[in-house]
């Protein structure tokens, strides 16, 4: 079974923020207190109760201005770093493609997942003593019932399209190829962090949408695992090596002692 994904076409997003509200609705997240923001992005950044956020971006070039809205949430890496760095397996990467913070009860609260997330899309409930993190779950509880994620369901213009990731990737390529003058030739999420389930296409460069285009282009877990693989070997071989040294130098020291 192929993994699911969502194709976000920024050129079709009208910034209605239905997705942001639908997400809160479905996940029963309380509203947070905000104040006016000049760019209308509100709250100004993601937080524990806003695990998806529509950011508004004005792009001024010469005399022209462009205004784009882009929804940001967990991108659901194909090989999620958060899953990889969690030392208690609080995360799950489901066969459907969702990266889910599935076992909060065993979470220690070390926040390595937050630090290591290449997109900084994991949020913490800071105001609680035994605080834990929260992230977009791809509406996993809807996926298993055969429903689309709440945000996709609510999108009026089709800016969010749910489907199999490989098919969506193909469609993204087709959309760009059939309209090369319009689209910026980059599918964000195709390669970022080794590929993500959420894919974005846009008619403006992604850095103008506040996306980190400097993100690692390969799977981060591949590297951490490459390192981790060595640990057991070292754990066994080093003591043996040290013991050998111990024995050897000891004997030499004793011999030297006898020499005295």
């Amino acid at each position: 079974m192929g993994q699911y994904g969502v194709l976000v076409d920024v050129t079709k997003c009208i910034g209605c923020r239905g997705c942001q509200t639908a997400c809160k609705n479905w996940n029963d997240l309380p509203a947070v207190k905000t104040t006016f923001t000049a760019d209308w992005t509100n709250p100004p950044e993601m937080n524990f109760n806003n695990i998806t956020l529509v950011g508004f971006h004005t792009i001024e070039k010469d005399d022209k201005v462009q205004w784009r809205a882009a929804k940001v949430q967990c991108f659901h890496c194909l090989e999620p770093t958060c899953f990889e760095v969690c030392f208690v397996h609080a995360y799950n990467k489901t066969p459907e493609g969702a990266v889910v913070y599935a076992n909060p009860e065993i979470c220690v609260g070390c926040r390595y997942c937050q630090l290591a997330c290449p997109f900084h899309n994991i949020q913490m409930k800071w105001d609680e003593v035994f605080s834990r993190v929260r992230k977009c779950s791809f509406c996993y509880n809807r996926l298993v019932e055969g429903l689309k994620p709440a945000c996709v369901t609510t999108c009026p213009t089709g800016a969010l399209k749910f489907g199999k990731r490989d098919e969506l990737l193909q469609e993204a390529k087709e959309r760009i190829n059939s309209n090369p003058d319009k689209y910026f030739n980059h599918i964000y999420g195709e390669k970022e962090a080794g590929g993500t389930s959420w894919l974005y296409i846009s008619d403006v460069p992604f850095e103008d949408l506040g996306f980190n285009t400097d993100v690692f282009q390969k799977s981060i877990p591949k590297y951490t695992w490459k390192y981790m693989k060595k640990a057991p070997i070292l754990a066994v071989s080093l003591p043996i090596f040290f013991a050998a040294l111990y024995a050897y130098t000891k004997r030499r020291a004793e011999n030297e002692g006898h020499g005295h």
Partner: peptide, 14 residues
């Protein structure tokens, strides 16, 4: 918990 739930993929685990 880390000692009981082996998050062996994590460097932090080690």
């Amino acid at each position: 918990r880390p000692f009981a739930y082996w998050g062996y993929t994590s460097i932090l685990f080690e």
